[in-house]
Design a protein around this nucleic acid. Structure first.
Lengths: 399, 399
DNA sequence: ACAACTAAGTAAATAGCTTGAACATACCTC
DNA sequence: GAGGTATGTTCAAGCTATTTACTTAGTTGT
């Protein structure tokens, strides 16, 4: 977890070598088709260093050579690409109503995915079922011939920084769960990096890390489901996640948006979740906890009461996002979670409110794009897989 | 400004050497009296490497040797200390009603300080006056024999990341000001690092960077004055400041705390600043902009209307801090700014609200300390000086 | 008081990484 | 097809951290 690099950073020659190899690998991963010369220029390294680094990464199967590029007057460079056929990563998400899991190639491409309804009763039974499903996934033809690099699990709650400990998951009723320790006995053959993180943070990481080409400097992921959470990832190399000292960073559902408002399940009044969240929408519209929220509301989207409720929730979400804009000011905001399936009745007020207000302080300058994920089913699970890859590339495990 | 290390991090042998020297210097700065052996253990370097690094830092006058330490069975180690007599740093703050400036030793000790009432009319005249005062400070006996390492300026508004450009300072009426460029012609002899930053961010940086002994992992500074701003610093080595893509991170005065509330000068409704800020308190109590807020309110602190107003503002501040706790979750929160001089009528509701609500999500765990700065006059200016030191130690200028 | 012990710090030889310069390669233009 | 230009490789050289042996300084035990 959150490899605590808090202690003083210093290093030997080996550290330097690994640093440079990681940088080369990251650069090619980020911009496929880069040549050795491009890398040398951008990383401020000499041709010789890049040459030997690339050679070693080619030998180890991390990179592969592509076509010659167009010449710009002299010898054309040879394109380099991430070798996407050798490894895979496992990512999983324990949701309030579902288990979701993916196997990803290093590029982020989903090789195999599975999700199924599951109400996580106890941590133990959940771990057992998840392990079964992961083993099924590993046996599937698309991944079975690849080498596994590790597994990441995304969970709906704050996680103790530096430990594999889920502090609390209000919507599961769990508390102080060492989920990886529960998973471990069921997956003895699974080696590599094991990690767990909060679902919104995993999602934020993945949305930034698996992007290629021109990447934003930072990205905020807002996860709107049964509860509301967010994750902020920053930096291009291996993005840093803001976790907070108790793992509470991003628990935006419990920021106060209406002083003296309704009581929240946390005991405080006027939390954002009382205005926008799966459970607050259920409460207002009287939808039973056992029914699927999206399916129940689907046929009712024309009802005045539903429209009014969703518009109010959407506007509250817009305010919440505006508050994050003025607190964290990410370069890009991505909105996901099951509530995005409610469609424009819910989303349009949020987008409009943010668009109308984001320029208040600076006047018209660059826009902060707010994007809604088309299908957020596997975003968190895929993000957990991304975290595994980053740990492998930057950790001491390789080279 | 904000040396953008966004491009891929890679390095040569020289980089490694500088990295290790910086680490050694930081460690001794953070924990005075460390021995070479302590450094070797903590930084995971060999005795030989530490020995030569320390030797070179001694030769350059950055460190000095102290007494022998108590033996723990073998030869006692020799204590190392930051040489606090050789260099100094300049820090300044342009406030809405005052100019403040300090000269600091590398330990953070204030050698000389000055502040005076000043209403910044134009950026040009402000730069001219500030330059005069800085030159006076440099001529004072406590600093004139020392070597200057540079100067930092803290300003009340968002700053473009990566540029020395003040985007906007609503309470000064300034916009798109390159303040260092205005200062430059008046201070031709001042070499070293020049930088500028937002005042709350500088303050946060300084409060974390100049602390010795056991330091928190992250620190949030909340600056409550004419407007409300915040700064978040993270990491022990050279703390990172969250700036945001447009420099808007920490503009918490414009987070919405009361949907549909009063209109704010930014044009939106229900901003935190409409509930707690120098200007909103003036507006409610009808205090003229020309009178000093603290001095005017001093004799009126028994009036019911004043008490009611300050308690309301204090409680709003408590909510705002709780929201930051659930968004950034810093390891420590420091409250400063001129409004802290209003005393307990204002502060007590804020502290109480935060204390009563910070454990809602996790139950009783470790407390996040919320501390009120005793005298925040020079906190931002000193923080700007701290930023200079960090840039010198980690930048390419030295070794 | 003196030897044995332990840990801190230093010196010189060694190992390993990046570099610099010369060289081979591949395509383009005239 | 010759000259030009930029890419990529090779190998000796330079620099940094390490290894190993040694010196230094204080403690402990007899």
């Amino acid at each position: 977890m959150a490899t605590s690099y808090h202690h003083q950073r210093a290093g030997d020659l080996n550290f330097l070598k690994r640093l440079n190899r990681s940088a080369i690998l990251e650069m090619v991963r980020r911009v496929p088709g880069l040549t050795r010369a491009d890398i040398a220029t951008q990383a401020q390294l000499t041709k010789a260093t890049v040459g030997s680094g690339v050679q070693s990464l080619l030998n180890q199967g991390w990179l592969k050579e592509g076509d010659l590029q167009k010449s710009s007057g002299g010898r054309p460079g040879r394109a380099l690409h991430l070798n996407d056929d050798r490894h895979y990563l496992l990512g999983a998400e324990v949701g309030v109503h579902r288990l979701r899991l993916v196997a990803c190639a290093p590029s982020g491409k989903v090789l195999e995915a599975h999700h199924e309804p599951f109400i996580p009763t106890t941590p133990e039974s959940t771990a057992e079922r998840l392990a079964e499903l992961l083993q099924q996934l590993m046996r599937s033809p698309a991944v079975s011939h690849r080498e596994n690099l590790g597994m990441g699990v995304a969970l709906p709650g704050p996680i103790a920084t530096g430990e594999a400990l889920l502090r609390r998951a209000p919507n599961l009723g769990w508390r102080d769960v060492r989920f990886l320790d529960l998973l471990n006995p069921h997956l003895p053959e699974l080696k590599g990096v094991w990690l767990m993180d909060n679902e919104a943070k995993s999602a934020a990481f993945g949305e930034l890390y698996f992007r290629t080409g021109k990447t934003p400097e930072s990205l905020l992921y807002v996860s709107a489901g049964t509860g509301i959470g967010s994750g902020m990832a920053e930096g291009s190399h291996s993005p840093l996640l803001t976790r907070g000292i108790q793992g509470l960073a991003g628990e935006i559902g419990h920021t106060i948006l209406q002083p003296g408002g309704l009581y929240c399940h946390c005991g405080n009044r006027g939390c954002a979740e009382t205005l926008v969240s799966g459970w607050s929408i259920r409460a207002v519209l009287g939808i039973d906890d056992k029914d699927d929220l999206i399916q129940t509301l689907g046929p009712r989207l024309q009802e005045q009461e539903v429209i009014r409720t969703l518009r109010r929730a959407g506007e509250a979400l817009g305010m919440l996002i505006l508050n994050l804009h003025h607190t964290q000011n990410p370069a890009e905001i991505v909105l996901g979670g099951s509530l995005t399936q409610l469609g424009n009745t819910f989303l349009e007020p949020a987008l409009t409110y943010f668009e109308a207000n984001q320029h208040r302080l600076l006047g018209t300058t660059q826009r902060v794009p707010l994007r809604v994920v088309e299908d957020s089913t596997f975003v968190a699970a895929r993000g957990a897989a991304a975290q595994v890859l980053a740990r492998v590339i930057h950790g001491p495990e390789l080279f």
